[in-house]
Design a protein around this nucleic acid. Structure first.
Length: 1052
RNA sequence: GGGCGAUUAGCUCAGUUGGUUAGAGCGUCUGGUUUACACCCAGAAGGUCAGCGGUUCGAGCCCGUUAUCGCCCACCA
């Protein structure tokens, strides 16, 4: 949103009521208004607090890597709905916004840009310069993100906007780290990490994806040097990564190949018994393989090798000539490869385990940049790819290459840089998870924190149950630097003397290196902190999740225990996507518990994922994200929010098909995988170029924009317009007339069916919508509101009230401020007006959380009629369901009216009776129904242009009648002059056929065990239904007989 | 390999604990310049609820199974 469209004048004019609601005007006007009033800023430590207490939500901080897409739009829409409702319900409501520094991702984006534009790497410009550039990037995108959130109408307290790398968050990080360190929960270990050679950092398992690539399977001969056995000159190992052989420290064979192969054999056989047809063929193949393996003598060879291994066998590694042992380890599977496997502990996760078990040396052959190091001997300095080629050709030249197969390999890639991962032995900081994870498990298991929908609980608990230690170091420059200083050649005494029992310093000796590691709570230690010694600060920064884990309490000022933390923590609900349930949510629970002793939130609501038209997750990295501002510009923020909430159901992800609309000719240009990232697109119809949201160059930007369109947002936009026009009708009808709450309350007791009905419906809807929102059933709540507003309030109540209001206009003095009852019509119309305004006000309140802008626009205009209304609908009182108004019987009775009206309209439409022509009808029904419907006569006239002639048990049936048998009543519409006898007979025949079918089915049902076993109520219902059907059949039969008689008379 | 979810009208999706004849929007068709709204109004057509089997008086819903699709986790010398 640019500033120039802000309208400073909030003084709405009720004479100025355009037919079409303009969302952009309302958005700028009311955003500004809310800001000026500070409605969403909650006073810090204020003394006056709501009796209802507090309700706080923290935003899942979006990464500053880029702008928000529709996935964020959904996430924040749902939060805003909940937050706005709670605020209206009277809670002290606080929604804290902010953004995440997203270490790896953001640094990667900036580095990539740096290279693309200036051909520079981070090493060229240095740490400070790179971090400076990332800060600039961060400023740009934080601004953009906040702008987007504001544009959506999010009711955050912007004055509290936090950034995971700002001072307040940094302080929390230091305290968290220090306390963990002090409790010995942080340690440094050598671990095999997923090394991204491009970004030169370790990435977590969760940041790795696998991709199928073409590769080879090399079988290499390793000569046996001791003992000399005739039948085994060498062992053959197979590998997809031959260059890693330079780091081999053993070859393994299974200790008991025979039993192992038999076990596999039996397992397959067992599975074959229960397998499906499709699986069978695969299994059979496997079985055949095993059997041929068994008969080939391979197992015998492996058995002998296992013997050799156990008695100590030495192998000479080709190329380097290093001597390595043949070991017996169950990791070597006799049915895979050659049955023997090379062990490279420093470069393969499984081999690493084998290495640990067998106490093997671990030889790292890689540099951090992915080239080979000095351990690789003559291969030093080569890239992995070059080394592979050279190793293979050298092996071949030396006669060590036994066989080369082609095969596809699942190759690990870094999610961030999209380059292959190299397993790499690296020093790494870890958090011990055992007790922390258990706390987080217990917190959910005992119900302290509820995860909704409940089915997600399992994933959370399973993940935590593995209790894998958390690697928290990242070899990056963008992040919270680890607050540890190392010192060599120092004694404990010197350290103790220097820090003199300071409780903000903690230190421990690293057994492996003999260095001391000193952790400082707040102060950054200078190099010379210890006399004559040098402190070296840890280079690495912390995992991003380490700081976002604190988000719920760091944003509220922890570790400072201030009023805010006490008042707003634990927060109410966390609303987020399922992909970070473990990485983020689980860690927030354990960090919250560890730091504050309290859970971070009462509930976690997991919402659906926004997918694109191909079912792919909308994401920043995929590039398929659609900017919500584009949707807002086209349809309005309310429509976007309404559309998204409407799609938020229990268990279905949301496939959002967004296409471009050509700005010249209006043609719909499908968004495809090819064009979805293009800055400009040529319209296939008019052949002109338009720009997209991805335009960056000035040339492109100057083109008109092709908007993103979607059917659901169109529906939502139409709804907003409908609502606006309903309000417009009310405002135009009332003119300057004031309707205050006293007048309204006086008139709510109206005895008219339609009044009681709409009040009952409003109460029911209020109750249900509240419940649905409170349990995060957004789509259900929105559907109830949509139906109520459109089908009940607009299509019925407004239509019915029209005649009552126009009565009024004839006799009424427009300037009268109160309804003096000096004539009957006036009193009557005042009742209608009161209820009309009352229902509209309540409806506006219920809709406000979903569509804040249009409801504010209307609310401000309603304030002209009653200045006692709240200054903004955002702080108006949430509708409290008036249970006394709920009247199921009235609602049922009104349905009869609706059924009859629809039947009359159907007769009109199907007989092509011109809308201007009035028709006459009679209804045969019991006394109760007649009494009910008689007062509604005028509505049949205004709503269906149909005049009632008679109601009752026996009515005079017009000679030329269209007969419609309904439940408990028969409708006769006089068709004199327009009747087509043949058509009418045909229609009735069809009707009779239908009714007969129902009767047959019903009789069959009532004949069996149903009567004996089904609940009495259900049986009675069915019997009543059968009686009704029989009556309908009877009416239809009589009617058809009559028509046939007329027809034969005519033929005479 | 383990787990989770989905399959309902031409399309996009609802459908609470099993209970009359399974709903909505869009699209289609018919008819409408009704002073709130054509971003509208009135009406209609359109479904073997993926297949098979079971439980039950009764299944879109519960159980088993098959097929197809999606997601998450683990593994692949």
């Amino acid at each position: 949103m640019s500033d120039n469209i802000f309208v400073t004048n909030n003084n709405v004019d009720n004479q100025d009521l355009p037919k079409q609601y303009d969302p952009l005007v309302a958005q700028s006007r009311w955003s500004r208004y809310w800001d000026d009033l500070g409605l969403f800023q909650v006073g810090r430590n204020s003394i006056e607090r709501s009796v209802k207490g507090s309700f706080c939500v923290v935003i899942p901080p979006p990464n500053v890597t880029g702008a928000l897409h529709m996935g964020h739009a959904l996430n924040n829409t749902l939060q805003d709905i909940t937050v706005r409702m709670k605020r209206m319900q009277g809670y002290d409501t606080l929604w804290i916004p902010g953004v995440d520094h997203a270490g790896i991702a953001t640094q990667a984006v900036v580095e990539k840009r740096l290279f693309e534009e200036e051909k520079l790497t981070r090493h060229d410009i240095g740490r400070d310069a790179l971090v400076g550039r990332i800060w600039n990037w961060k400023e740009k995108y934080q601004t953009r993100i906040i702008e987007q959130l504001k544009g959506m109408g999010c009711s955050c307290d912007w004055s509290r906007t936090r950034f995971t790398l700002d001072e307040i968050c940094a302080k929390a990080v230091r305290y968290f780290f220090f306390n963990l360190f002090k409790q010995n929960l942080i340690y440094r270990g050598k671990r095999l990490v997923n090394w991204d050679t491009h970004l030169q950092t370790a990435v977590s398992d969760d940041e790795v994806f696998y991709e199928t690539v073409d590769g080879n399977f090399w079988h290499i001969k390793y000569p046996i040097v001791e003992p000399k056995v005739d039948e085994f000159e060498f062992v053959i190992v197979a590998t997809t990564r031959p260059e890693t052989m330079l780091g081999d420290t053993a070859v393994a064979v299974h200790p008991d190949p025979e039993n192992a192969i038999n076990k596999i054999h039996n397992d397959i056989k067992k599975r074959l018994e229960t397998a499906s047809e499709k699986e069978k063929s695969d299994l059979q193949k496997e079985l055949d393989n095993i059997e041929s393996l068994k008969s080939s003598g391979q197992i015998e060879r492996l058995k002998k090798l296992a013997q050799l291994a156990k008695s100590g066998c030495k192998i000479k590694l080709p190329l380097s000539g290093r001597i390595i042992p043949l070991i017996a380890d169950a990791w070597a599977k006799p049915d895979k490869g050659t049955g023997c496997v090379k062990i490279t502990p420093a470069h393969d996760p499984n081999d690493y385990e084998v290495g640990l078990r067998n106490d093997l040396p671990m030889i790292n052959i890689l540099n951090k940049d992915g080239t080979l190091n000095s351990a690789a001997g003559v291969y030093e300095g080569l890239t992995i790819k070059a080394a592979r080629e050279k190793v293979v050709s050298d092996l071949d030249a030396g006669g060590f290459l036994h066989l080369v197969e082609e095969r596809t390999i699942e190759l690990a890639h870094s999610d961030r840089s999209k380059t292959p991962i190299e397993p790499f032995l690296h020093d790494q900081w870890f958090v011990k998870m055992a007790s922390l994870a258990q706390t987080a498990i217990d917190t959910v298991k005992n119900g302290e924190v509820k995860i909704l929908p409940e089915r997600y609980t399992k994933g959370y608990i399973d993940w935590l149950s593995e209790k894998r230690d958390w690697p928290i170091g990242r070899q990056l420059w963008w992040g919270h630097r680890i607050p540890i200083w190392s010192c060599k050649n120092v004694t404990k005494n010197e350290i103790e003397k220097t820090f003199n029992n300071r409780n903000d310093i903690s230190f421990i000796r690293d057994d492996e290196s003999g260095e001391w590691r000193i952790c400082s709570l707040e102060e950054d230690l200078p190099e010379d902190a210890i006399k004559d010694r040098q402190l070296v600060r840890e280079e690495d920064v912390l995992d991003t999740w380490f700081s976002s884990a604190l988000w719920t309490h760091s944003t509220l000022g922890w570790p400072d225990v201030c009023g805010d933390l006490e008042y707003y923590y634990p927060t109410g609900v966390l609303i987020t996507n399922r992909d970070i349930l473990t990485l983020w949510v689980a860690r927030m629970v354990l960090a919250g518990k560890f730091n504050t002793g309290k859970k971070p939130f009462h509930e976690v609501y997991i919402h659906p994922t926004i997918l694109d038209k191909y079912g792919e997750r909308m994401s920043k990295s995929l590039g398929n994200g659609v900017d919500p501002i584009s949707v807002i510009t086209k349809f309005g923020a309310d429509a976007m929010r309404f559309g998204l909430a409407f799609l938020t159901t229990e268990n279905q992800d949301i496939r959002l098909v967004l296409d471009f609309e050509c700005p010249y000719c209006g043609a719909v240009v499908e968004q495809t995988k090819k064009n979805r990232k293009l800055p400009k697109i040529q319209c296939p119809k008019c052949k002109k170029n338009f720009r997209t949201q991805w335009a960056e160059k000035d040339d492109d930007k100057n083109l008109p924009e092709g908007m993103m369109i979607n059917e659901r947002f169109e529906v939502a936009r139409n709804f907003c317009n409908k609502l606006w026009n309903a309000a417009r009708f009310v405002l135009l009808s009332l003119g300057d007339k004031k309707i205050d709450s006293v007048t309204i309350n006086k008139n709510l007791g109206s005895e008219l069916l339609e009044d009681k009905w709409i009040l009952s419906r409003l109460a029911t809807v209020t109750r249900d919508v509240t419940q649905m929102f409170e349990t995060y059933h957004y789509a259900e709540a929105v559907r109830l509101l949509y139906d109520f507003a459109w089908d009940e309030f607009c299509s019925f109540y407004l239509e019915m009230v029209k005649s009552r209001l126009s009565d009024n206009n004839d006799n009424n003095d427009n300037n009268s401020n109160n309804g003096n009852n000096d004539n009957g019509n006036n009193g009557q119309s005042l009742v209608a007006e009161s209820i009309l305004v009352y229902v509209l006000r309540n409806l506006i309140c219920l809709l406000h959380p979903v569509t804040p802008f249009v409801t504010e626009e209307i609310w401000q205009r309603l304030r002209k009629l009653d200045s006692n209304l709240a200054v903004s609908v955002a702080v108006a009182e949430w509708g409290i369901a008036d249970n006394s108004a709920v009247n199921v019987e009235i609602e049922e009775r009104f349905k009869i009216f609706q059924e009859l009206l629809r039947a009359i309209r159907d007769v009109r439409a199907s007989r092509n009776i011109p809308p201007k022509d009035e028709i006459k009808f009679a209804v045969k029904c019991n006394k109760t129904t007649a009494t009910l419907l008689k007062p509604m006569e005028k509505y049949f006239l205004t709503m269906a242009k149909a005049k009632a002639t008679e109601w009752g048990e026996s009515v005079e049936i017009p000679e030329f009648a269209a007969t419609t048998p309904l439940t408990g009543m028969d409708l006769y519409v006089d068709l004199s002059g327009v009747i087509n006898l043949n058509e009418e007979i045909k229609k009735l025949e069809k009707e009779i056929e239908k009714i007969k079918n129902f009767i047959t089915a019903k009789e069959k049902k009532l004949d069996g065990d149903f009567i004996k076993k089904a609940p009495k109520q259900i049986v009675e219902k069915e019997q009543q239904s059968l009686t009704d059907l029989k009556e309908q059949l009877n009416s239809a039969t009589n009617a058809i007989k009559k028509l046939i008689k007329i027809k034969s008379n005519q033929n005479l």
